[in-house]
Design a protein around this nucleic acid. Structure first.
Lengths: 226, 226
DNA sequence: CTGTAAACGGAAACCCCTTCTCCGTTAATG
DNA sequence: CATTAACGGAGAAGGGGTTTCCGTTTACAG
């Protein structure tokens, strides 16, 4: 005998990994409310296989979301190591980009704490504290308009990430997310006490949007999102 | 006999009006996906009564949404009669405020056209054309940053309206919507070619937020939303 | 190669919610 | 006060969800 009680077959581990991989995509596309049906359909497996590998739907979701939250936290941590103005910009960009790409993350960050069953409370608190540190630092350095508050930052980021694929029948163009982020960053910087020159931060980046008029150097041109 | 065939009882008309009134609130709070169950529960009526007064769920929804769309259109029409800068500001404010207050309107304007079954296509087109006129006029007058586009306006408005009641565990405070709109407006105006002085537009308005530091005159202080 | 048990897929049980209808009862009104 | 429109609630019909049961397949040790 190989083990005292259980011999784990190779297809079992393979399917477990497949389910995690597929669930990652599904949660990113559909959101926290993704169904087990949807996940096993994408994996071309039976539902029973799912429940043989995971105790419940929530168990798989937790595994998937832990990774994403850690990734956001790491990116924000990096932003705190930049100078105040660049850190603010980078934090907002990170929050918008991650939530735009990942519907489940958006659901988790913007929903009330009860939505996720109370789990992830610590991760959310750590992210919130990072955003606060970045916001307060930017404001002390005069890189953020005094009327704005650090509490506005996650709301602004979540709002921009919620921009749907169509609005009033107008389809979102590739540059939309970048332009919207640029608008908000310009608004946050408007009337900042310290004059920050950002023109040397993106010196080598080519104009991302072919049909766009040459960007004015007082309006940050961000790399396109998504 | 009173009429040839039908005598309409007074409680029937009363209930019809009650259902419309209650559905207006329900669609505003819940959105386009509000169920008949929810509506009759709020009206304290039976489901059968609903279907005796309306042929289907869609019929009532159409009646409710027609009103709201007409109201938005009228407000935007007013905005076109102001000067370009003020019109831009007013249009954005109108779009954000209406969609913040009315979840069903948000669903209708941000969803793809198929979501509403293809109805309301003309109303949406008229609203879109008004926004375009306002945006293009603002840009020609130099009241909007040249990097921004009129197409961004409905997305920005929809995004801000989507700001949820809680984000990262931070509850939305009463001034949040106004500050966020202020940020976006400042961003849209940043670097505009024409220097617009908005300080005389809100001369009599008291500071809306008690705990807010006195607003700088280079950042428009809007009346609070919601 | 073969026996065995782990793993499989799909049906189905079960629950919740939806739109819409049937039917026995209530009550508005001439 | 008789008539009958309108009522409420149960229930039909349908569609989604999660989770389990069961007969079949298949990986793997001996």
């Amino acid at each position: 005998m190989q083990d005292e009680k259980t011999r784990t077959r190779s297809d079992a581990v393979r399917n477990r990994e497949l389910l995690i991989r597929v669930a990652r995509e599904a949660v990113a596309e559909v959101g926290l409310a993704v169904s087990v049906n949807e996940i096993v359909r994408r994996a071309r497996l039976g539902q029973a296989t799912f429940y043989r590998r995971f105790a419940s739907r929530e168990e798989l979701l937790s595994a998937v979301l832990d990774d994403v939250l850690a990734s956001v936290e790491a990116s924000l941590q990096e932003a705190t190591e930049k100078d105040p103005a660049a850190g603010l910009q980078e934090a907002l960009r990170v929050l918008v980009e991650h939530q735009s790409r990942h519907r489940g993350l958006y659901d988790l960050l913007t929903g009330d704490s009860a939505a996720a069953g109370g789990t992830f409370a610590e991760q959310r608190a750590r992210i919130r504290d990072l955003v606060r540190r970045i916001g307060e630092r930017a404001q002390e350095a005069g890189a953020m308009h005094p009327n704005a508050r650090w509490q506005d930052l996650p709301f602004l980021a979540g709002s921009l990430a919620a921009a749907s694929s169509s609005c009033l029948g107008i389809d979102a163009d590739p540059g939309l997310a970048g332009r919207m982020l640029g608008t908000v960053l310009a608004g946050l910087r408007a009337g900042a006490t310290a004059s920050t020159d950002h023109s040397d931060e993106v010196p080598t980046a080519p104009a991302p949007y072919a049909a766009t008029p040459p960007p004015r150097d007082d309006w940050l041109q961000d790399q396109p999102l998504s």
